[in-house]
């Protein structure tokens, strides 16, 4: 895997954008400006960005209810996403999808998904398309440790392994399925172990370390593209802001959360690594920080000003209308 300075700048930009985007959403909810259910990705940035840094635009990803990070990492435009969250006509999905359904097929983003585990067979299907149509594309399913308990996970992995599909299953093990600690409901220590049932490769990455995720994703993606079948890549991570916006977090240990947030922040880790390796200067990163902050502020301002959907849109796109 080779990461050029431009790749690193883009990765950092995406990670910073995800963090600020999610913090901004939390503020906007508290200010009463946003409705609906919001699940924030802060803390898990290295996973989405690490994996997507190794993908092509035509590769397809499926996501989860915690999907903003995957969207940004896959290149979905932030102004459209923000307008979508404001329920505006200019949103990525014309204001009809909302947080849990942001999708942009033009960017290979086959949707956030409100149903835990439901993106997994969709990615498997995208991989079937890639294989049968010989497009050379790879599909990636992002999902959580919770989804690995769903039938859709097991059925999909079995089929993908059997057909040797070009797909990478990325499980973001953030230690909790909603509010229940993973070890309360999962008998295996590592979700990656589940790959063995399907004679599938597996790999465990430090989900707080962009470089580790990118390295391991790169191998899995290359194998998939080379026709060597699927990989289950488990990324150990942590959600900094709880399950949903407004989560009072009574169920998690304060010290544990502080340890992850203070000592393992993926953005700080990235900054340390690029400094140690002399890849990017702190000054460059601060310039990106400023750019991202301005872009985000502009996106919020534009979304607030954007028109609401016309009531006529209620009934459009239920079906493909053919002549």
């Amino acid at each position: 895997m080779e990461l050029k300075p431009d790749d690193l700048r883009l990765a950092y930009r995406h990670m910073r954008m995800i963090r600020l985007f999610e913090e901004k959403l939390s503020d906007l909810v508290q200010a009463g400006k946003l409705g609906g259910f919001l699940h924030l990705y802060a803390g898990e940035e290295a996973v989405a960005v690490g994996v997507c840094s190794q993908l092509q635009e035509t590769d397809v990803v499926t996501s989860t209810h915690r999907g903003h990070g995957h969207c940004i990492a896959k290149g979905v435009e932030v102004p459209g996403m923000m307008a979508e969250l404001f329920g505006r006509a200019t949103g990525t999905c014309k204001g009809k999808g909302g947080s849990m359904h942001i999708a942009d097929m033009d960017k290979g983003m086959l949707g956030a998904n409100g149903i835990v585990g439901a993106g997994i067979p969709l990615a498997t299907g995208a991989a079937l398309t890639a294989k049968l149509k010989r497009t050379g594309n790879v599909a990636v399913a992002f999902f959580g440790d919770g989804a690995s308990n769903q039938g859709q996970f097991h059925e999909s992995l079995n089929m993908a392994a059997n057909w040797q599909l070009p797909v990478v299953y990325v499980v973001e093990n953030n230690g909790f399925g909603e509010f229940t600690p993973t070890e309360f409901v999962v008998p295996v220590r590592d979700i990656a172990e589940r790959a063995r049932s399907y004679a599938m490769r597996s790999e465990i990455a430090d989900g707080m370390d962009f470089f580790d995720v990118a390295e391991k994703a790169s191998k899995a993606i290359a194998a998939a593209r080379a026709g060597e079948g699927p990989t289950l890549l488990e990324c150990k991570t942590y959600r900094f802001m709880g399950h949903f916006v407004g989560d009072p977090l009574p169920y998690r240990h304060k010290e544990e959360a502080e340890d992850w947030i203070q000592n393992r922040d993926p953005l700080q880790g990235f900054e340390r690594t690029v400094a140690e390796r002399g890849l990017l200067s702190a000054g460059e990163l601060r310039v990106i920080d400023g750019d991202v902050e301005r872009e985000l502020a502009a996106a919020v301002a534009a979304a607030e000003e954007a028109p609401l959907p016309s009531i006529d849109e209620l009934l459009t796109d239920v079906y493909v209308e053919t002549a």
Binding site: L122, T124, L132, E155, N158
Partner: peptide
């Protein structure tokens, strides 16, 4: 069945 139909949905959405 969930794998079959779910995979078919993903395949349909991406060009098959």
């Amino acid at each position: 069945e969930m794998g079959i139909i779910g995979t078919a949905v993903g395949a349909a959405a991406t060009g098959l």
